[in-house]
Simulated scan of single mutants.
Amino acid sequence: MGETEVGAGARGSVVRRARELRAPWGRRSGERGWIPSEDWWTPSVDAVCEAYTTGTDLTEPCTRLGEARARSGVEVGRALADLDAFGEVVGWEHVPLALVRALAEGWVEGGRGRDTCQDPLTGLANEAYLRTRVRELYRSAEETVPAAFDHHLVVVALDPTLDPWRRAARLIVLGHELNRFFTRGESVCLASRARIAVVARDEPALRTEIDELRSGIGWEHGAAVWSVPLPATHREASALLDGLGRPPCEE
């Protein structure tokens, strides 16, 4: 067996052991109130797990974890509680102070210049922006013309049972491809960690585009594609967005 094969095997063993640690950590955080659970995973979670399983210094991975939590809009107390859940899983009586400090410093750094309209993992406009965009349409409908009623939400939904890493990777690729697909000023937004919603004007071309999405990008990534017209009132639209952001098991 060559050196390359040995290296690949060792790397595979590290990844496997890290995943075995990641799963109970995620469950413990969920038990301690991390809702929705699908928003918990980030690449920095894997960095922490891999560092622990290889005996590497955890300071830098914890800093990265804090930065990622801040960029996602997670409060520092919630981020620290998540780190404490990790400590319980690996059997620490207390999380080392150096790691608490590293996460907190990362959280402060990650919060500086944070773009509150962009999801840090996928680069898509986030759910807050989606809600703002829809609200603006209804305000326009009240003041000038019925703009909201001329729009649809095009939903692209991944299988929520996918491994979080695979789902995140597909979301990143889907976001890139959808931004290239929609070229008439549509808003491509992350509705949840398994769904992308596109605010699009109801035009004759839209129906053809949805068919193309189903047979093309959607089929390639195992994603369902459908469209929903925006309802008559903003209250109903808010309820619709609530449903899109809710984990499927709760619907």
Rank of each mutant, 00 (worst) to 15 (best):
Ile196Thr: 10
Asp115Lys: 02
Ala8Cys: 08
Arg28Trp: 01
Glu20Arg: 14
Glu177Ile: 02
Pro229Gln: 06
Val90His: 08
Glu3Phe: 10
Leu65Asn: 08
Leu80Gln: 15
Cys49Glu: 06
Leu206Val: 05
Pro160Gln: 01
Val225Lys: 11
Gly185Thr: 11
Asp159Pro: 00
Pro61Val: 00
Gly216Asn: 13
Ile196Met: 06
Val199Glu: 10
Arg133His: 12
Arg17Asp: 10
Glu50His: 09
Ile35Asp: 15
Arg78Trp: 12
Ser140Asp: 15
Ala81Asn: 07
Val188Ile: 11
Arg112Met: 12
Glu203Lys: 07
Leu97Thr: 11
Gly87Arg: 09
Trp92Ile: 02
Pro231Phe: 07
Asp115Trp: 01
Pro248Met: 04
Gly91Pro: 13
Val154Asn: 01
Glu177Asn: 11
His152Gln: 11
Leu103Cys: 11
Ala98Tyr: 07
Arg214Pro: 08
Ala224Asn: 13
Glu143His: 12
Arg133Pro: 14
Glu209Trp: 02
Leu178Phe: 12
Ala232Asp: 13
Leu244Val: 12
Leu213Ala: 03
Gly243Gln: 05
Gly33Pro: 05
Glu177Phe: 03
Gly26Thr: 10
Ala168Asn: 14
Val90Met: 05
Glu105Gly: 01
Glu50Asn: 04
Ala141Ile: 06
Ala194Cys: 13
Cys117Tyr: 08
Thr56Phe: 13
Leu153Tyr: 05
Ser187Ile: 01
Pro120Asp: 11
Phe149His: 15
Thr53Asn: 04
Val15Trp: 06
Leu130Met: 02
Arg16Glu: 14
Gly243Lys: 02
Pro36Ser: 08
Glu220Val: 15
Ala81Met: 05
Ala47Phe: 04
Glu127Trp: 12
Pro247Lys: 04
Leu190Ile: 04
Gly73Thr: 03
Arg180Glu: 15
Asp119Asn: 04
Leu21Glu: 04
Thr54Ile: 04
Gly7Pro: 04
Arg28Lys: 14
Trp25Arg: 09
Gly33Asn: 08
Glu67Leu: 09
Ala232Thr: 04
Glu209Ser: 00
Trp219Gly: 03
Arg135Glu: 06
Arg19His: 13
Arg139Pro: 03
Arg114Val: 15
Ala128Ile: 05
Phe181Tyr: 11
Phe149Ser: 05
Trp219Met: 10
Pro231Leu: 10
Val155Arg: 00
Trp25Cys: 15
Thr144Ile: 08
Thr144Pro: 01
Phe149Ile: 03
Gly26Ala: 09
Pro248Leu: 04
Leu230Asp: 02
Val89Glu: 06
Gly106Thr: 05
Gly111Asn: 07
Glu105Lys: 00
Ala197Cys: 12
Ile35Glu: 14
Gly87Ser: 08
Asp202Gln: 06
Arg32Phe: 05
Cys117Pro: 09
Leu58Arg: 14
Leu244Ser: 11
Phe181Ser: 04
Leu213Val: 13
Cys117His: 07
Thr116Ser: 13
Trp107Ser: 09
Pro229Thr: 10
Gly7Lys: 07
Ser37Trp: 07
Leu99Gly: 01
Ala51Thr: 00
Gln118Trp: 08
Phe182Asn: 03
Gly33Trp: 13
Ala168Pro: 00
Ala232His: 15
Ala239Asp: 12
Arg27Pro: 10
Pro247Thr: 14
Glu88Leu: 12
Cys49Ile: 06
